[in-house]
Design a protein around this nucleic acid. Structure first.
Lengths: 194, 194
DNA sequence: TTTATTTTATACCAATCGGTATATAATTTA
DNA sequence: TAAATTATATACCGATTGGTATAAAATAAA
């Protein structure tokens, strides 16, 4: 055979995620990516394809990790109310610098690319649907456990919680008064998880 | 004096709004703007300054018009419930092609520029605060008119409605199943305007 | 009409964009 | 060790980026 790769694809891809997450697609140049990863352009192109393919690989990786994180957050507490309180707490006051500074990579892509590229519309929509399914499952469990009444529409409320999380995430980008975020979170939780 | 301008600044600026609204800041080139407006670059630079100043002028124009439209929508119906139903209807099913295709120019800017440019963070935050104030006023009127109970927290609910509208607007960019949008809208209205 | 002033149009600038051809360095199989 | 194969590094490509110098065209006041 031949020479071995000198870099770890997973590690490099994570650095690509962080950069696209922070700056978006258009504002990130291939030069930015070479300096961030330490690789030269031919290595990046050989390993991932062109800029768009690289972005897509990064987004897929992010979505996978993000979904896992959301699921984990929802399983930590006994009640759905506590679970979603923890989830909104994570979204609005995470220690993770990327989460608070740059929001959600998938949401950023929904705004920047989904309206102009059907492939990214599909990719981001599927992630939202997946989150919605996670939320629904958690709410259905709460119905079984008698936390919520049996006529509670788990799916509709799950979708609304996703939309609320989405709105809060975008709102955070303008550095609003924390009381705004607090009040909104409290109303969402108390109104949607009665 | 001297020669007169051959173009109408307001008309040109509206075309600039439409282009930045559709494509965002980075993806819109000065060449795109000259072809869309019919002006040459020196004319654009003389009238509005550089690309960033032109974008800011466009966003200010949009925000002004958007705020007026939101206020008008909220005054058309007798009840707050009907008013916000009409507002969400406008956001999710407007005839206006720009509204449905490209969402909200201000929200797009919150995602693309606010995290990296404090000036746009301020500009977009102030618009959200203004909308929140409009919503609050409408809800307070509903309290006076006995539609809502006197212990209803108008401001907190207004902020939550803004966040919900924001989330729905971003969600729409992925072309989700209309039943998703319908369900979310209904839950938001029934939960936040009891 | 002359003069002063401003807008317009053309052409151009260095810098950067995404992407690649080429050649050298490295490593494995034979 | 020799041959084959692959990754790397350098250098480069045409196209486009935001922005401007220059000069012609047009219009006002004198």
């Amino acid at each position: 055979m031949a020479r071995k790769r000198e870099f770890d694809e997973e590690h490099v891809l994570q650095q690509v995620v962080n950069l696209f997450w922070q700056k978006g697609y258009e504002a990130t140049s291939m030069s930015d990516l070479t300096t961030a990863t330490g690789l030269q352009k031919p290595s990046l192109y050989a390993a991932f394809g062109d800029k768009q393919a690289l972005f897509e690989a990064a987004l897929r990786r992010y979505n996978h990790q993000h979904a896992q994180r959301m699921d984990r957050l929802l399983q930590q507490d006994k009640t759905a109310r506590q679970s979603f309180a923890r989830l909104f707490q994570y979204v609005t006051q995470s220690d993770d610098q990327h989460q608070t500074e740059y929001g959600c990579f998938c949401i950023n892509t929904m705004v920047e690319l989904a309206p102009h590229d059907e492939r990214f519309a599909v990719l981001t929509r599927e992630h939202q649907m997946y989150l919605s399914a996670l939320f629904t499952r958690r709410l259905e469990r709460a119905i079984v456990e008698k936390e919520l009444s049996s006529d509670y529409d788990a799916q509709a409320h799950a979708q609304t919680l996703v939309a609320g999380m989405l709105g809060l995430t975008v709102m955070l980008k303008t550095n609003p008064d924390p009381t705004f975020i607090h009040a909104t979170t409290n109303i969402l939780l108390s109104s949607l998880l009665p």
